[in-house]
Amino acid sequence: MMKLWRMFETLVTMVMMAAVIGASPAVAQANLEINTPGVAALQASMQKRHGELAPLYASGAVGLTRDGNVALRDPAAVPLAQRATANGLVAAENQDRAALYREIARANNHPEWEGDIRNTFAQRWIDRAQSGWYYQSAAGAWVRK
């Protein structure tokens, strides 16, 4: 019985040491995994939609929000006949964006990172937006880039 316990101890100790030694460097230099079919599908869907969204960004009808979404900020800039389409594009884009942030967090085995990933994206969408596009400042006001 004693022997068994000792063997168990040794084994667990070894495994744990290995885990501690092995895990640290792997986590420290972590690269986010984004090459998954889920990310690819969402990326393709958003890329396809961008052709329709780009003129709306340029006209200021749609802007980038501070929480990593897009919003119809000036519907008057869209003719009535296209307003439903614009509204639909915004809804679909936000759905894809939410799924993208969730999917990246899930693909990296850290579902709890979803919020951080969303925040990171929110900043990067705005940083990389073309000049003339509108984005929401940290205080929530619309700013033309």
Binding site: L80, A81, R83, A84, N87, G88
Partner: peptide, 11 residues
């Protein structure tokens, strides 16, 4: 004229 009453557009 025309009317847009989310989500319906009528002419």
């Amino acid at each position: 004229g025309e009317v847009f009453w989310q989500p319906v557009y009528l002419k």
